[in-house]
Amino acid sequence: MADNNKFYFAKSHEWISIDSDNFYNIGISDFAQSELGDVVYTQLPEIGRHYKKDEKIGEIESVKSVSEIYAPVDLTIKSVNSKLNETPELINDEPFGEGFIAKIELNNPSDLLSLMDKNSYESFVKSNHE
């Protein structure tokens, strides 16, 4: 269904991708992290919990702002990126890599098709925020 290393984006700036071990990962986009500024704290989702599409799964805080992370599709949390507890700045440094939020399972992988690919996300950002 989904290509390795391909990123799927939500309008609320989360991404989902599939890594080389065939796990799905979720994170926030480079644009979102740059809007937030220096991340100082993340509230990670609960392991094992099932979240419905658009449900809040966590929070990211910079010094004086808070942003919520939403589930772009129905998903279940397999594990979280606990490195973020000590080094939340990974979200700024490597939003698409080490700064991912969690590893997830998708109820229905075809849900990903409702999300944007990289190009359409970039033009979405461009048209809405510039």
């Binding site: 704290y41 805080e61 010094v63 004086k64 702002s65 808070v66």
Partner: peptide, 9 residues
């Protein structure tokens, strides 16, 4: 930790 407070949240 001002993000707890009313002027932000």
């Amino acid at each position: 930790l001002a993000t707890r407070e009313q002027h932000i949240r």
